[in-house]
Design a protein around this nucleic acid. Structure first.
Lengths: 152, 152
DNA sequence: ACATATTGTTTAGGTGCAAAACATTATATG
DNA sequence: CATATAATGTTTTGCACCTAAACAATATGT
């Protein structure tokens, strides 16, 4: 029986690597998300789409992919799936016959609201180890990282 | 000509989602890493292995996979590749004939040191937008998140 | 001695993402 | 107007990453 957590490993080359720590932390929150709503058949990526379309109805696929900073080719299968779940729909744009305007179905709206509550609750149940205001500070720093990309 | 960054999108459902922000921030640091050493044929995952074996020579594949919190089946192809690059080598363990002990080759040691410098430099060049001590605070919070997994 | 566990491995599968090419349609430029 | 250029959705291909299940070889516990 080895004493488990003190696993005697020297992490010194990774100890200060933000890339590594962010990846590990994200894996943790991926689990938090999955625990909250994997049963619903929704992944973090799909939730992001629902969250954007919920508050921005009528956006094109390209606009959503731009908002989430993923390639527009990744939208196709994602929207196909959400459309198959009958929570989103593509309507032909009248101004631009190339593109679709995305809307949540009534079912999709309540679905997204329920999902949002579950995700919020799941994350909130996972803040017991954080100091007062630490979460807000973390969000702010992460936002600065995300915004800083062009500047580098 | 649309005024670019103020893209008029309502992110209110994602604004406070740590899972989402961590994912976005990690993508940024993935780019930082790639810029630093994609030319070397090294991915973040492979760098993690090199970093662990560098300071912990003789570890088994399972021990490394445990240290990095990935499945041990994922080690096989990774070590195969690193062995093909002649930076790591598998030596038969004498105590346990099932397992290999992993060691960096001399070439692998200097390679890892050079890589580490590049990654460090790449991350450091990307901290101009951070306040004094903000990076340390971020690392500490991320560590707490990573450690908190069992507690939840 | 025998049941159980562990190691490395293979196979299969799933996810997320990006690059490239394509037809269709818009837009800008001559 | 005509023509070049760009944008949209799509498909295909490929990479990185990760897991689960099964297997033979070997260790370990009872």
């Amino acid at each position: 029986m080895n004493h488990d957590d003190s696993n005697e490993i020297d992490y010194s080359m990774l100890k200060s690597r933000l890339g590594y720590k962010l990846r590990r932390a994200q894996m943790v929150y991926f689990d938090v998300f999955a625990e909250a709503c994997a049963r619903e058949g929704i992944t973090p990526g799909l939730f992001g789409i629902l969250a954007i379309v919920y508050h921005n109805p009528g956006l094109t696929q390209s606009a959503v992919s731009n908002a989430l900073d993923v390639d527009r080719s990744a939208m196709v299968a994602a929207i196909d799936k959400l459309e198959g779940m009958e929570v989103i729909e593509r309507r032909k744009s009248k101004h631009d016959r190339r593109s679709y305007a995305l809307y949540l179905t009534p079912k999709g709206k309540t679905f997204t609201e329920r999902l949002n509550q579950k995700v919020e609750a799941g994350e909130e149940a996972f803040t017991t180890f954080m100091e007062e205001g630490e979460r807000e500070q973390l969000l702010e720093t992460l936002d600065r990282i995300i915004q800083a990309r062009r500047g580098s």
